[in-house]
Design a protein around this nucleic acid. Structure first.
Lengths: 280, 280
DNA sequence: TATAACATGTAATTTTATTACTTTTATCTT
DNA sequence: AAGATAAAAGTAATAAAATTACATGTTATA
């Protein structure tokens, strides 16, 4: 079993009537459940104690105490989202907490939607890429730049383009064996879609870091999905970049595995090159 | 009561013979104790059950189950500071999990080290800033770019410089009422330190997103600290950017609070400007 | 509509934790 | 150093909590 809190939101887990009631109650106030005996929880939810117990064992846990322990662990790690919206009247402390919480939540949903096989497949392909062009605009351009910085460390010819004209030129120049990595939160940014189209026609393989089922995702050969919440309120932190960056991290980590033997020498030289720019 | 683990090492707690034995046992293998009933722990330590119970209540806790809960919480917290290393032989699924785990860990430690008062103070100051110059290099340049993108949405004159010559020129041109936001993971990058120096001499206020107690942190007027793990192994994900970006998010969210009334019109126009670039 | 599969509840049982009380051990006083 | 006193630890009883076994009801399907 993965994360308990995700499991509680899972429709598979909530099949039965009472399971749904338990899941809802626990999600609403997990902290309170931690100091509850099974009898109190059962009463609060309006079901019998054994039903609560069955719910726990059904989750693959040893029983109710085990359930509470897991819950406590996950709350401690702040690995889930209580999804309280940020209120302008919140104290700064509350805001900090909520922004971080939504970052955690965003990471969780990104991890949920990730297929290890696809990640590995992309990593293997990028290793033998003739070249990689990375494109992003607006909020995604820092991500593109970051991806360039990460991939640069491997011996792969990679370049990030943030300027639309340059992006078009670069995409048009690609061919078989080349990869075009398109980064777009919404997957509906027209200029990026056009670039993807250009790259595709030129014969490049398209990889997207974008939201699933978006127009961009549809056109891409391989997709690393990020969930799009579409909430553009001022107080809503822009968490998508966090997920995107972490996906780049995942990719880079996996790329490292598929490097040839002499790679560590290369890395050593890269590190060396920086040493004179740092204070001891 | 503060941290349980510290309490266990405390000589005050270990006054009695059996307390010492319990504390030692628990410190040696806390994880195991979590899945133990009081009877087993008592037997393992060689004392009676009520003594174990008294030990727990003596600590100010409700009883043994409460003790286990606290223990689980603290183990969970510790775990992400000592995030498991990534092994080249790990499966892709494991790697994904570990990379995400370290991102969570990084967020947690960033949040812990954050002082709400400083965050709010910086937010208030930036609102009335005459101009803001953001500087970052290497891995931090995407963060600088991202910060620019975020702050741009507010009606503040902000610019990110990634090029060192431009950074020097921009820093030299600052004065009272201007802010120089320096982003550096290590806080020891010489060119960034030089820029900070230039900006300071010019009369700007320095804000750093960097590791605490670093040379950069020392020179800055206000610091948002990120922990630096200094691990530059290939398999170590570069999580610091995640923390930095989230700090920028926190700052931006807090900035939103301090905006004047007409601000939502401004935001509306910003949003409008993008609509024609998106597919319906 | 009958029946099988499943969800839930009731009551009994087991496990776990706590309390009340007793014994032991250590500490302090003279 | 002996006795008084307080603190600590143990034993046994009790209470609380969780689980199991079994019975009942509900839903879906043939």
């Amino acid at each position: 079993m993965g994360l308990l809190m995700l499991e509680l939101a899972n429709s598979e887990t909530r099949r039965t009537n009472s399971a749904k009631k338990i899941a809802e109650y626990v999600l609403r106030d997990p902290q309170a459940v931690i100091d509850m005996p099974i009898s109190v929880l059962a009463a609060k939810v309006g079901i019998s104690e054994p039903t609560v117990n069955r719910f726990c064992t059904g989750l693959g846990l040893k029983g109710f105490p085990d359930f509470k322990l897991r819950l406590a662990t996950e709350i401690a790690r702040r690995k889930f989202h209580i999804s309280k919206d940020i209120d302008p009247d919140d104290s700064c402390t509350d805001m900090i907490e909520k922004v971080f919480e939504s970052a955690h939540a965003c990471l969780n949903s990104a991890m949920e939607g990730l297929d290890a096989a696809i990640v590995d497949d992309i990593a293997v392909r990028l290793c033998s890429a003739r070249s990689i062009v990375i494109c992003g605009q607006g909020a995604s351009s820092p991500v593109a730049l970051d991806a360039q910085h990460k991939l640069m460390r491997f011996n792969i010819p990679v370049i990030a383009h943030l300027d639309n004209l340059n992006q078009r030129m670069a995409a048009a120049g690609l061919g078989a064996g080349d990869y075009l990595l398109c980064i777009s939160y919404t997957g509906r940014t027209i200029p990026i879609l056009e670039i993807a189209e250009i790259g595709r026609n030129a014969g490049a393989t398209l990889i997207g870091i974008t939201s699933a089922d978006s127009p961009l995702a549809t056109i891409c050969d391989r997709v690393l999905a990020v969930e799009s919440s579409e909430n553009t309120d001022v107080y809503t932190p822009m968490t998508s970049r966090i997920a995107q960056l972490t996906l780049v991290d995942v990719l880079a980590t996996r790329l490292a595995v598929h490097q040839p033997k002499g790679f560590s020498d290369h890395l050593q030289r890269v590190k060396q090159s920086l040493s004179s720019t740092r204070l001891a």
